[in-house]
Write a protein that binds this DNA or RNA. Structure first.
Length: 459
DNA sequence: CTATGGCACGGATT
DNA sequence: AATCCGTGCCATAG
């Protein structure tokens, strides 16, 4: 009965359906700002009216209009635009320019045979025969496909796919890790599947912890089913990326683009107008057949309920964002490290509503920050985000690999007291390897140890 | 002996 | 009521 838990996109379809079905429901499109002509759901117009002298954020409702996207958003926007395109077509668009006229049907033929995971079940020889092309030509096309966007797509086996994906990461991971992961995937794939790390370690003559680190890396960053990560529907339901791809439900920007000023929060609503019970319909109710009256008044009742629910949703969302924008201003302007611990319960208390109300309001929503980043609204309630960010920074700036204990001590100096065990958990979440492994990696990837200055100061 | 990960417990949060 | 989170204890690798 309540619309609160629905993100704007779903609310839009729900309301559109109701609007079509119920004649008593009417969409009024008449509120426009006399100053700027912008459509408004609420006065005063936040763009034209002077902001209050305080720093308080201005929260208002805004119709979902096409937004101007910052460069940072363009990439996700691109993904989104193509999200509904079938995989084969998506790939064909990328490699199309590099294909000759003769290669085009070959590519289409191959792409049609990709299974739902993005793997290619057929053999190049078979394709060559069917297309009356040379084997080398087929392989050239296949290679092009394999280097197209969902990395690893078009590989014949999960193993091959993983190797291709690994290659695409060459520049962003330490060479030692790259080599190790490559060796494991190439030569010990079955053992990896069985998680027999000890055996792999023995054969490669590498410490077991390193093998485990590499296995974790593979598990975290590569997928045997390349198409799923990008196209799988519902299989990866609640990742941060999933919500980041869609349009936000809320946007925070600077009032009048003047950075440093008050914040402007827009809660998007599906329509540029407002819903009400049609007065004409109500008038018609007065003089109509007795038989129809029952049905018509039911429709009116239903329509009234919907407008009420919608108002309630808007009201709650605005009050919620008011609190968040005030409380987390520094996080909105700064970065992860500035997030203050804030619980749904606190907000519920401040707004005098039930906790579950806040949970519903936050669930599934995403928000665009002034920086252009789109993040889940739930991020404002992440208790440990700022601490994790500090851990990341500490490791990034370390001169020698810090152990979890040392990190814990360093954090304590910043006034954050967490147990060593907790640091380990955060480190894992961040995908940072243990200190001893980092030390090893640094050592083995160093070309010549001699070129390295002594880094342990005599004490 | 030290550093780290797994398990599980209790308290907070949803 | 179910889930999440920080933490202590213990086993294990190096």
């Amino acid at each position: 009965m309540s619309f609160l838990q629905l993100p704007a996109a779903e609310l839009e379809t729900t309301l559109a359906k109701e609007l079509a079905r119920n004649p008593a429901l009417e969409l009024v499109d008449e509120l426009r700002c006399p100053g700027c002509g912008k459509r408004l759901l609420q006065r005063p117009c936040p763009t034209c009216a002077a902001p209050s002298q305080t720093d308080h954020p201005i929260v208002y409702l805004s119709p979902r209009e096409p937004r101007a996207y910052s460069p940072a958003e363009l990439e996700t926007e691109y993904r989104d635009a193509y999200a509904h395109v079938p995989l084969d077509e998506y790939i064909l668009r990328q490699i199309g320019p590099q294909l000759t006229r003769a290669e085009r049907p070959m590519a289409a033929y191959i792409l049609a045979q990709l299974d739902e995971d993005g793997l290619f079940a057929g053999s190049p020889a078979e394709v060559a025969a069917a297309q009356r092309a040379s084997l080398s030509a087929v392989e050239r096309v296949l290679a092009l496909i394999q280097h197209a966007d969902p990395p690893g797509v078009g590989a014949r086996t999960p193993q091959e796919s993983l190797l291709v994906q690994l290659d695409s990461l060459t520049d962003s991971i330490p060479p030692a890790m790259l080599n190790l992961a490559h060796a494991i995937l190439q030569n010990h794939f079955e053992l990896l599947g069985k998680q027999d790390y000890a055996q792999i370690a023995r054969r490669l003559r590498v410490p077991r912890s390193l093998v485990e680190a590499a296995a974790r890396f593979i598990q975290r960053n590569l997928t045997p089913y390349p198409a799923r990560a990008f196209w799988g529907e519902g299989k990866v339901p609640e990742t941060e990326d999933a919500s980041a791809l869609s349009d936000p439900d809320i946007s925070i920007s600077f009032f009048n683009q003047s950075s440093g000023g008050p914040l402007m929060v827009e809660v998007f609503t599906p329509f540029s107008g407002w819903l009400r019970v049609s007065p004409d319909f109500k008038a018609a109710l007065a003089d109509c057949d007795e038989a129809d009256r029952e049905k018509l008044s039911a429709a009116v009742e239903q329509a009234a309920l919907i407008t009420k629910c919608l108002q309630q949703r808007n009201h709650t969302m605005r009050r919620l964002m008011q609190i968040i924008a005030e409380e987390q201003r520094s996080f909105i302007l700064g970065g992860d490290r500035d997030l203050r611990p804030l619980t749904r319960a606190q907000v519920a208390k401040a707004l005098a509503v039930h906790e579950s109300t806040i949970s519903r309001a936050v669930a599934g929503k995403s928000i665009a920050l002034p920086s252009g980043r789109i993040v889940p609204l739930a991020k404002f309630f992440d208790r440990s985000l700022s601490v994790r960010d500090r851990v990341r920074r500490l490791v990034e700036h370390e001169t020698r690999p810090l152990t979890d204990d040392e990190i814990a001590v360093a954090l304590a100096r910043e006034g954050i007291h967490v147990a060593r065990r907790t640091v380990a958990k955060y480190r894992n979440m961040l995908g940072i390897l243990p200190a001893n492994v980092r030390a090893r990696l640094a050592k083995t990837s160093r070309a010549r140890p001699a070129s390295m200055p002594a880094l342990t100061p005599a004490s």
